[in-house]
Write a protein that binds this DNA or RNA. Structure first.
Ligand SMILES: [Zn+2]
Ligand SMILES: [Zn+2]
Ligand SMILES: [Zn+2]
Ligand SMILES: [Zn+2]
Lengths: 163, 163
DNA sequence: CTGGAAATGTTATAATGTATCAAACTTTCC
DNA sequence: GGAAAGTTTGATACATTATAACATTTCCAG
């Protein structure tokens, strides 16, 4: 539903946030899940940019706001959000990012710019299909795919072409 | 070169180890890199099975052998081995595994059995191509691909089919 | 030899993630 | 409404993974 917006370039990011929160509320209502204030606030913090945020970064922001938060506070909220498909964990960065396709059944593929830190989440059916095929060729039953691609986004390629 | 052996099934694993060590020696000689005793021993420990090993598991084995080892000892050796393409880090597990295609230019794709813990490293040109294509379609310059697939290996599917 | 580079030893600490149990809050059902 | 059951949060402590910093040793070229 959300028109795919382009993390790398300037855009009306508040729209990303509003959309994500609206989607989250709808999804939780639909799934009878409780999007409590802390969970919602954590989701909002995760969405404050298109750069993945570490759990302890979230924690720092919560405590700065005067919330009575400890590590489990954050990890519980993140677990909840992951289980409902609202955030993804980027294993190669130990960090979290808002899901750009919440509600849609998808396997994420992440393009991570090593220069600016922004992450674009893609759904590439061709890639998913190829992966499924390769797994099946080995008689392996794939359940969970981690696909993270580090490199340079278009913007950072032109800014720093000498490498 | 190494004929791809099948982590999931019983096999002469000592052959895997010998092959890996021989390859490592050859590669290091060729690259003028020093495969010191500690580095070689760490590689051997990593290869003790087809299950990824945590850095602190390696450390425990080293100290059990009476070696004077601390975390940096292990992480340095692992860094060296990674840089020379002899081991891979599995980001989703925070663990390390011997490279099954040392010397060959490749992007690893890992099939990780969540039941038995064994990992099969594949080279799937179709997958790599699809990923490259998807990245290029976004004008993203891919440099490093993390592709880890968790699921059930053939053996564990038949043993525990009820899920 | 010997001087510089590479590797290792050593200590301390940072960063990330969990276990556990008690307290508070919600929902359900009567 | 009110008690029981389930869910969420608070709070403390701890486990696991990884790195910083600096001293010492080893290796190798010249
Ligand atoms: Zn945005
Ligand atoms: Zn960038
Ligand atoms: Zn083997
Ligand atoms: Zn298995």
């Amino acid at each position: 539903m959300a028109s795919q917006a382009l993390p790398y370039r300037p855009h009306n990011h508040q729209a990303c946030v509003s959309q994500a929160l609206a989607d989250a509320r709808a999804i939780c209502r639909e799934q009878n899940a409780r999007l409590t204030p802390t969970r919602e606030r954590v989701l909002e913090l995760i969405w404050q940019s298109h750069k993945p945020l570490g759990a302890y970064d979230v924690l720092a922001e919560l405590t700065a706001e005067g919330q009575n938060a400890a590590p489990p506070t954050v990890y519980r909220a993140l677990d909840f959000l992951q289980q409902h498909g609202l955030v993804h964990r980027i294993a190669s960065l130990n960090a979290f990012i808002g899901c750009a396709h919440a509600g849609e059944h998808h396997t994420g593929m992440f393009l991570i710019c090593r220069n600016c830190g922004n992450v674009l989440e893609l759904t590439a059916p061709g890639v998913s299909g190829a992966i499924e095929g390769a797994a099946q060729a080995e008689n392996f039953r794939a359940e969970d795919v981690t696909l993270e691609i580090a490199g340079l986004c278009p913007r950072c390629q032109s800014e720093a072409p000498h490498d």
